Simulated assay, not measured.
Amino acid sequence: MDNISLLIVVNIISLFISLFLAFFLITLKTKYKISNSLFAFFLILNAIDISEPLFSMVTDGPSNLGMFRTTFAFLQIPVFYLYVISVCYSDFKIKPKYLLHLLPFLIVNLVLLPRFYTVDAASKMSFIQNRQNMIEFQFIHILIHLQIVLYIIAVFRILRKTKKLYLENYAGKNISSYNWLFQFTVVLSILYAVALLKNIFKFSDYQQVSEFIKIGLFVSSLFIFCWYLFKALNNPDLFRNIDSKLKLVSELVSEEKSSKESIEDEREYNEELLKLKKYMVEKRPYLNSSLTIQDVSSDIEIPVRDLSLLINHQLGQHFYDFVNAYRIESAKDILKDTSKSKVTVLEILYEVGFNSKSSFNTAFKKHTGNTPTSYRKNLQDSVL
């Protein structure tokens, strides 16, 4: 099978799977309709982008529709950016201001209007054949690569902020789930970098290399999209707890310093700290696997803002780590109890408030330097 035939076969398979996944997401009954629809739109844009081999087979030379199809690439990364925001924040809504993300797409089509969209077929052909010397193409290439870099940076900034907000305000979900979207973004960035390499070869004397890279992109992108969707659909609460109105502790501290109100004195700080520790020991709220800082604030009647500053700033711990420290101590007590030697590690982790083995092992090793299993074994060996 020659390269062209292989490219067409891979292209057909890629288009079918991309559109099938998009249809599945759009029709899926879920309360997360907006984020699913945005990712479906992203998949559709990807399908439009990779349809070039098939489109070339059914068209005779350059056309307005064909050029318009290529400009949809300027919508891919903005849609992915909005998707990331939608899964990071529970209160996400589509707003008119998001229409600003259409600007690069509109600008590119306006740039192409005078010397491509409004000219005859012969002029279109000449425009394509001399594309390396056309200022419009140079502008488009610079803009698409600049857009990708800026949006990828923006996505990583959002992920970094929301993960920190989670650590400062929540102690429930498995923190490792945050890595999936981060990993997907990293891989997506690599795909865009490879696509850039493909374009470099496309406009060189090594166009055959460009075709091989294109086939690799089609195949790898499908595996990556399927992997991510499998993860996301099996963990629908990914990032769902973050409220966009929450502020980082660093921002709260900055506001405190600039405020005319004095920071709480040492006596008040000590009283609130004692109240918090007494509550954690006596009420054992950490046994609730979905505990939030808002829950603790309500129970001990300390404002969320003050409690967040107390734990995350004054104690120098994220709320997530603060709560897990109590969970680990409770787990250690069970592991030390010889009468509970038959209780499995899995049973223990659920009993003390964790909801996954990986998060329990990570937290336990962080606090003790050992895994739960080795910790129990060491205790048994010391007794013998």
Rank of each mutant, 00 (worst) to 15 (best):
S5F: 03
V281H: 11
S221M: 11
R160A: 15
A325W: 09
V194L: 07
F218Y: 10
A73V: 14
N46E: 07
V149W: 07
L309S: 01
S262L: 11
R305A: 03
S56W: 01
E266T: 08
W180T: 14
I334N: 07
V10T: 12
N133Q: 14
N133E: 14
V209Y: 12
E329D: 14
I77G: 06
R115K: 07
L167P: 05
I142F: 15
T118P: 05
V345P: 11
V84S: 02
E268L: 11
K31N: 12
V149N: 06
V111L: 02
A195P: 00
I50K: 00
L159Q: 09
N64C: 09
L38I: 01
T71F: 07
I13T: 13
I50L: 02
N235F: 09
M280D: 02
N370V: 06
L106D: 04
I128M: 11
G61N: 01
A73E: 13
K198I: 01
I293V: 11
K278A: 13
L252I: 10
N355H: 02
F105K: 00
E211H: 05
C226G: 04
N46R: 00
I224M: 12
F72I: 02
I152T: 10
T373L: 15
S330R: 13
N355I: 06
F72Y: 08
F223L: 12
K164A: 15
T71S: 08
A121D: 14
D205G: 13
G316T: 11
R376N: 05
F354N: 09
R160Q: 14
S5W: 01
S262K: 13
G353C: 01
F225M: 07
I17H: 08
L7Q: 08
K198N: 08
F41V: 04
F39S: 00
F201N: 04
S358G: 07
S250G: 12
Y166V: 03
E347S: 10
L349C: 04
A195T: 13
Y170F: 15
I213S: 00
E211P: 00
K198D: 02
E282A: 09
V84T: 08
A331T: 03
T185L: 06
K247V: 10
Q380E: 14
K336S: 11
S5L: 02
D295A: 05
L197C: 08
E329T: 11
K97W: 15
L7I: 05
Q76H: 10
C226S: 14
L45F: 02
E268A: 10
L113T: 01
L7D: 02
I85L: 15
Q317S: 14
G172A: 04
P236Q: 10
L181C: 08
Q314Y: 15
K365S: 14
L273G: 06
S126Q: 09
K277F: 10
I152H: 10
L188R: 11
V383Q: 15
S90F: 00
I293F: 08
A22G: 00
V253K: 15
N109F: 08
I334P: 05
Q208D: 15
L196M: 12
E282Y: 09
V296I: 13
P285E: 07
E271V: 02
P104K: 01
I26P: 01
V209T: 12
N199R: 12
L197E: 04
R305T: 06
D265W: 02
N179E: 14
Q76W: 06
L99A: 04
K97F: 15
V79S: 07
K161V: 14
K275H: 06
I190C: 03
Y326S: 04
S18R: 05
F68E: 01
F212N: 11
